[in-house]
Every structure is written in C-alpha cells, then in structure tokens.
Simulated assay, not measured.
Amino acid sequence: MTESIKKSAIVAIVGRPNVGKSTLLNHILGQKISITSRKPQTTRHTLLGIHTEGDFQLVFVDTPGIHSEHKKALNEYMNHAATQAMADTDIICMIVDRTHWNADDERVFKHVKRHSAKLVLVVNKVDLLNDKGRLLPYLEELYQKSGADEIVPVSAFTPSDVQRLVQALVKLSPVGEAIFPEDQVTTRSSRFLASEIVREKITRQLGDELPYSATVAIESFDVGERFTEIHATIYVERQGQKKILIGDGGSRLKSIGTEARLDMERLFDHKVVLKLWVKVKANWSDDARAMKSLGFGDAD
C-alpha cells in the first residue's frame, strides 16, 4: 500500500446509456478495462477502475446507463446496479452528452439528488459540438439547474481535458489514505475481463442483429508458462441467434474470437489460446435465476 497518498475518493460515474462513461474511464486510467461500443447499454456490470497519481487515489465505479426500460430482469438488474453505486461514494460524476439533456438525463439526475455526495457534471463530447458558442450559456444553465460543485466540459480523447477533470475531482476529494495498492488498476478478475472482451466484440460486430441477447461465461481460464488457454461459452436466447453468431461456416464466430484474443493478449501481456462455443439458453435475460447462474451479481 502506498503511504504517500494524502487524498482519496470513491467516484461513481453515472449517466444515461451511451454518453461515453466507459470510454472516459478508460482514458483516465490510460488503459482499457471497460468495454465500449456504439450500442446503448453495452455496460451491464459495475466495475472499479483505480487511478493513483502523485499524492492522490481516485477509485472510479463505472456503472450501466440508467434507462427507462423495465421490461426484462436484465434491465432491472442494470438500473439497480447503477443506482446502488451512488451510495457510499464521495463524489458522483454525472456524464451528459453535449447539450442534449433529455428525459433520461432528468431521470438520472433525480437519482443523483437523493445522495449527499459532491456532484461533478461532465459535459462530454464537446469536440462534436457544431456551435461552440452554445457551450458557455449551456454550462451556466446547467449550474443553475443542478447546483453542481463542478461542471467540466471535456472530450475523452483530449488528454488535457481528461487531466482537468481529474484535478477537479482531486480538489473535491477528502483527505484520506489509499484504498488499493498503487499498481492496481481494477478489482475485477482476469476471467471477468476476458468475458467482457468477448461480449464487446459480439456487440460491435452484431449489435443490430443481437443487440442484448448474448452473454458470455468463462468455463476455464488456465495460465501456463507459454500461453493462457481460455474456454468461453456464448449464450443466446434463440436458435436463430446462434446461427447468426456462428455465421457461414463459422466465419463470424472466428472473427469475434480473433479480435477478442488479440485484445486479451494486449491486456494480459501473454499469448492467449481462445476457444468459443455457442449455446441457447431461452429467455435468460428475463429470468433472474438464469442470470445468477450466468454470473450476474457476482463480485469478480
């Protein structure tokens, strides 16, 4: 444990789906631990990202996007995970997409207001604003509306913006010791990160055809001297989805496996042998018992 830390904080990152929460976290950490895609609701689980620099440590809790759909057990699980993450945090970092405040942002803000944590509003993707002149009046409007402790406009892809956000969070952080060792970046296991990488590739390649019907379970994760061998099963809800996921002659599954393996090798800094299977588990996303058997709710 580092003894030089003078300030530390637990920071919940919240917002509606697809505002860039996971992308921003990855840029703060300087490495990818949270999966991303253009599809809303890509993030399903809370994930801790730990940023230690100089004399401070920020422990970020990346959350699923809070949304209005309550049709399935999966939607309920994701909303519950996001709202629970705001409890017992020092700072809530609410991400909004440029000047596009909508009903989902309002819903998130209602949850945020229930907590006594410091509030930082992050106006993300400002590089995509067509009319930059709208930004300052909008920031003033947000301040009047929210009473936020800080409002920080950023582009997640601009290092100086990211550093400015980090410094704003440090300014609001209480005095305290480090919670985690300085070289630790996440509390999630390699098994979990491997399953998320596979799911990211599915979402990116088949997001329109299989938007939310696939989940991944790691059956074995064996680390050897020469390579790590990982066996994973992809579960879908219908036979037709299985056919789409496998593709002609197994081409789609092979492509997903290749992309996932390369990402795993970068993350784990070790050669990876990845084997994928596809199985049907009917209506798993609306069955709380099935979701639990597939790892939803597990801490690792």
Rank of each mutant, 00 (worst) to 15 (best):
K32V: 08
C93H: 11
L121P: 00
D105S: 07
K71Q: 14
T52A: 11
I28S: 00
L129A: 04
R107M: 15
L135H: 03
K39N: 04
A81M: 14
F109E: 04
G54E: 12
T158H: 13
G49I: 09
D97T: 02
D62Y: 09
M86F: 04
K71H: 13
K71P: 00
L58C: 11
G30W: 05
V152T: 04
D104N: 08
D97Y: 05
I92M: 07
A85V: 08
G49C: 10
S34N: 14
D62I: 08
Y143F: 11
F109N: 06
G133F: 05
I66D: 10
V154G: 07
E106F: 00
N102P: 03
R107G: 09
I151M: 06
H27N: 14
T52V: 06
I92W: 04
P64F: 07
M94T: 10
D104L: 14
N75I: 01
K118V: 02
L74R: 12
V154K: 08
G54M: 04
I92P: 09
N124P: 05
I92A: 06
G65F: 12
T83Y: 02
G49S: 12
V120A: 13
N26K: 01
R44H: 08
G133E: 12
L48G: 06
D127E: 14
Y143T: 06
Q84K: 14
W101F: 13
H51Y: 15
S68L: 15
V108L: 08
T46K: 15
M94V: 09
H45D: 13
S116E: 14
E140I: 12
Y143N: 14
D127N: 10
V112W: 08
T83H: 03
V96K: 01
F56T: 11
R98S: 11
E106P: 02
S155E: 01
G49D: 08
N102T: 02
L142P: 01
A156I: 07
I91P: 01
H67D: 04
K145P: 01
D105E: 12
T99E: 11
S146D: 00
N79V: 04
V108E: 05
L58S: 10
H70K: 15
H70Q: 13
P64E: 10
I28N: 00
K110W: 00
N26A: 01
P137S: 09
D149Q: 04
V59C: 13
G30K: 04
D97G: 02
I92G: 07
N79K: 12
R107T: 13
N79G: 12
I91M: 00
P153V: 03
D55S: 14
P64N: 10
V123F: 02
